[in-house]
Design a protein around this nucleic acid. Structure first.
Length: 725
DNA sequence: ATTTCACCCCTCTAGACAGCATGTC
DNA sequence: CTAGAGGGGTGAAAT
């Protein structure tokens, strides 16, 4: 056993102030990846890529770089893929405020106005989401020259199909501007290549804080399972056969006081797992367990909407739950905490859980099959390692156990995940949808305006290194033509060069952070009518590529075919010809219609429960639809204004507020009052209270409606608003 | 005449980031 | 491609 290395050993590198702070934060010993990183000399300013498993202390390396920059009078930026992670890190780094560092956060929940960007100039440490940082960098804030380091959390996201290109652009700009880069990555197949691209030193480590046993598991033809347990668990190198793996581990877990996490790539799948094993866990609960679970149930009853609570109640009472994005964020947080405290013994989850907050378990069961695009596929080794990394809670568990590939049918397939190497990650920037956004952004921000400069800018990308500049330049040329066709940019010939400039529409598109195609669809849709219904507007934005896909209940679409036909005839919906406006670009017309119907119900005050049942969606889905709807309705409003479509823009701006609060027009004033949402606003209007003025004049009526507590609060809030006016 | 049931066909499959106007009183 | 569960529809058998 190596003697542990302490922070003190590196005081000569870290400096006394940082050492003092880190100790105050509770750090003493350094993990091997941290030692290696320090040895690499990243605090002197070199780029570094750290490839190491979950919980090996990568964040601290980033944190050191941020503090180092701060102590040198520079700014540090830390960027992550999730808002929840950004917030977590923000809280963590706020510790340094006692050392004089000003710590700020910037993500979509906060505005990105000029003032906001200016405001960020005051901070020494800024935590952002990837997209927000991309958006900020496009605005080229004056303070960018003071940024000493950008720390990219979850750097392996670089290979993510839908968002990797954002990371690539951030890093490309960091390279171009000569800003130090610290990349924190899971173990990937080609770390050398990424390090080479970033001109970074590479720290590779497989060190984990908890020993990990990967248990080869597979299904036998009779439906039972073979498992090769590790030697020191049952001293056997031949497999044991159990009829049900999950049951086997749950029984062990409940008796020995640890918990079990199972991953599966399907919402329905995880709900079924929870259902299936709730009776198993229930059998073993102690009276103490039951009491704690009863408390938990009471908490959920208060905190969650009824329809969500009703779905979970019987599971939670048995110490079991599922976890996926159909749940509201509130439900997810409660379940995560209960699992962390081991009140919930068995949790079946989709990969949301592995992406987000740190939630380890002694035993992790991994299913590897998922279904997509009509086929049956297996998750990659990289994804498997990410899920497996959740096994073993540092400081609590002596080891972690991963049941590898519960749903495969041969030993070979299971071993493949254990012995196999994570796949190399590739650039995703060359997809048309990614490139059209970024080429436009580079032109709109004036980071590059001539063909040569644009090509030069993109020659710094990972894509250029991987694919070669010729292919890249060809693609860029195609995109430039497309953007010109879409009226996003204009072209001018100057002597030996071509100069590009963003149009008003292009500028707006970049600022709104939407896809040029989204803008075009909105423009085309609006052009067709002078004035339109809310259903028309809301369907139109639902058809754009920026609106995320929605899980509509089975059979629901079909049930609406006739209704939809009649709407199209009445010109209440954008007609399907809209699709033909875009050669080669399929727009999701049907999705848009469903979104339109859902959001129309929402802004007409149909109760949430009713909407969810009607369209077979879940509480969490409705929330996503509302957020997307708000952002894109706003975007449509700004686009309409840019094109001087006065009626549309007026209507759309009004609609933004209605989507935000889920109310009809007459309730817009009331919902501005804090503590008043769609339901209370309607109650007041029904009682004759129609404005803030009315609230103050009919104080007693408000208190009669909502009781002493809420009633008085609401009146008080209304008074505050009156005072402001 | 109405209900029940076996059977076939069809459908469906994870997640999450981004925006913050303006004219008028 | 290499799945599999559940919903809906259908038609014939059972009541």
């Amino acid at each position: 056993m190596l003697e542990s290395v302490t922070i003190d050993n590196y005081e000569y590198v870290l400096g006394s102030i940082m050492v003092k702070g880190l100790k105050e934060k509770g750090y003493r010993v350094l993990t091997p990846p941290q030692v290696e990183a320090l040895e690499s000399g990243f605090l002197k300013g070199d780029n570094i890529v750290v490839c190491a498993p979950t919980a090996s202390g990568k964040t601290l390396i980033g944190e050191m770089a941020l503090i180092n920059a701060f102590l040198n009078g520079l700014k540090g930026v830390y960027t992550t893929p999730l808002k929840a992670l950004a917030y977590e890190k923000y809280i963590e780094f706020s510790f340094w405020e006692r050392y004089g560092a000003r710590v700020g956060i910037s993500m979509g929940d906060y505005e990105v106005t000029e003032e906001e960007v200016e405001r960020l100039g005051r901070y020494n440490i800024i935590v952002t989401t990837y997209e927000r940082l991309d958006s900020i960098l496009r605005r080229r804030p004056y303070w960018i020259k003071n940024v000493g380091v950008i720390v990219v959390d979850e750097l392996h996201m670089l290979g993510d199909e839908s968002r990797g290109h954002i990371v690539e652009m951030i890093l490309t700009r960091a390279k171009t501007l000569g800003i130090q880069v610290i990349g924190l990555s899971a173990t990937v197949g080609n770390p050398e290549e990424i390090a080479l691209w970033l001109k970074a030193k590479l720290v590779k480590s497989s060190w984990r804080p908890v020993k990990l046993y990967e248990v080869i598991t597979y299904r036998l033809s009779d439906g039972s399972y073979a498992m090769f347990l590790p030697g020191n668990i049952n001293n056997a190198s031949s497999p044991i056969v159990v009829s049900d793996v999950t049951r086997y581990w749950i029984e062990k877990a409940v008796k020995e006081g640890f918990n079990v996490l199972e991953f599966k790539y399907s919402r329905r799948g995880v709900e079924e797992l929870a259902e299936q094993y709730s009776s198993v866990v229930c059998e073993y609960l102690t009276s103490d367990d039951r009491n704690r679970l009863e408390e938990l149930v009471q908490l959920m009853k208060v905190e969650l909407p009824d329809f969500e609570y009703e779905k979970l109640e019987h599971l939670i009472k048995c110490g079991v739950s599922y976890h996926h994005a159909g749940l509201t964020p509130e439900a997810r947080r409660i379940i995560e905490n209960a699992f962390r405290e081991r009140i919930i013994k068995y949790l079946a989850a989709t990969p949301t859980l592995a992406m987000g907050v740190n939630l380890p378990a002694r035993v992790v069961i991994v299913n590897v099959y998922y279904y997509s695009g009509g086929g049956r596929k297996k998750i990659s080794v990289l994804e498997y390692k990410q899920l497996a990394g959740r096994a073993g809670r540092p400081q609590y568990d002596p080891y972690g156990i991963v049941v590898t590939a519960k749903d495969v049918k041969s030993m070979r397939e299971s071993e493949y995940y254990i012995r196999g190497f994570p796949e190399p990650i590739n650039s995703t920037l060359l997809s048309e949808s990614a490139l059209r956004k970024h080429v436009l952004a580079v032109i709109a921000s004036k980071e590059a305006n001539t063909l040569n400069d644009i090509q030069l800018f993109f020659s710094n990308t990972f894509a250029a290194m991987k694919m070669g500049k010729e292919i890249l330049n060809k693609k860029i040329n195609n995109i430039l033509e497309l953007l010109e066709d879409l009226s996003m940019i204009t072209k001018r010939k100057v002597v030996n060069n071509v100069v590009y400039e963003a149009t008003k529409l292009g500028l707006v598109t970049t600022m709104l952070y939407i896809d040029p195609l989204t803008t075009t669809i909105i423009v085309e849709g609006l052009k067709r009518n002078e004035k339109a219904s809310e259903l028309y507007y809301l369907s139109l934005i639902g058809m754009t590529p920026d609106f995320s896909d929605v899980n509509i209940g089975r059979g629901v679409r079909k049930a609406y075919y006739d209704l939809i036909d009649s709407y199209v005839l009445l010109k209440q919906l954008p007609d399907e010809d809209l699709e033909q406006v875009f050669i080669d670009q399929r727009i999701d017309w049907m999705r848009g219609v469903m979104i339109g119907l859902i959001l129309t119900d929402w802004v007409n005050e149909v109760p949430e429960r009713r909407i969810i049942e009607k369209y077979g969606i879940e509480a969490g889905d409705l929330r996503v639809i509302r957020e997307n709807g708000e952002w894109l309705t706003y975007s449509a409003a700004v686009i309409a204004k840019t094109l001087n479509m006065v009626t549309h823009s007026k209507e759309l701006f009004k609609l933004v507020e209605r989507v935000k609060h889920g109310v009809k027009e007459d309730a817009l004033e009331l919902v501005k009052i804090r503590y008043v949402g769609r339901v209370r606003a309607r109650m007041m209007i029904n009682s004759g209270i129609k404005s803030i003025e009315d609230v103050l004049n009919k104080e007693n009526l408000v208190i009669r409606l909502f009781g002493d507590g809420w009633g008085k609060k609401i009146v008080e809030e209304a008074r505050k608003m009156k005072d402001i006016i």
